[in-house]
Amino acid sequence: MIEFTDIHKAFGETVAVGGLTLSIPPGEVFGLLGPNGAGKSTTIAMTVGLLRPDSGTVRIDGGDPADPAVRARLGVAPQSLAIYDDLSARENLLFFGSLYGIDRAAAGKRAAELLDLVGLSDRARARVKTFSGGMTRRVNLACALMHDPAIVLLDEPTAGVDPQSRHAIFEIVRSLRDQGRTIVYTTHYMEEAQKLCSRVGVIDKGRLLALDTVDALIREHGGDSVVRIERAGGEERTQTAEPVAVLQQALASGDAIGVHVERPDLETVFLNLTGRSLRD
């Protein structure tokens, strides 16, 4: 269980996090959604004990993340590719494993498993500097898992990766979810949050604007769907809370040559909540 209770963090005059209260139960894949500068990374930094909140508390299974024993339960894949380019993928994994006191034999076995998981077994002994961005990102993720943490924090894990690696990372996250781990997934890609997260917190300017399941957020903040009906004379757009009924009507009229339904998504949710796009 991760619990944030009314945490505040400011850097000079800039408020990075202002009064965040949130609980993430074990086994949940929680998405922290917000644009760059929203306060996601600061929240992660306080979760892992890198930063102390100015006020409020962060608790990991009831413990303070400043406590090394508490931090040992966390696996962190930072947004920056925080691995060593001049070491091989395997050496990186063994090194990060050694920081958690894993003995060499167990670390070797675990490294092999993880390299298999991230699809890099055949490049295990190649130096990371020879890898593509996506491969490096996968090693970055694997390093967070070396000590088999119960809670995994993934900070923008797909930033700048190719579609193949993005897909591989999605599969890894699903696999971790199936193993019952708690995952905090920060992103500004709404489709990732929609695909992977059971609950999403929308954060902007350090404030939690909304918190719920993806469907509930869309229902509550997404607004109406848009139904586009193509006819010989042109396209008709209808904004409606009952898209199925509008579709049935259009099809019954017999002159529709094409229909398209645009459902609201998290991007729409964010737009409606903040008045601007996620990527602004």
């Binding site: 892992v48 931090r71 390093c143």
Partner: peptide
């Protein structure tokens, strides 16, 4: 590079 931050998230 961020590796120092990562080291500091370890125990």
């Amino acid at each position: 590079k961020g590796t120092l931050t990562r080291l500091q998230t370890s125990p």
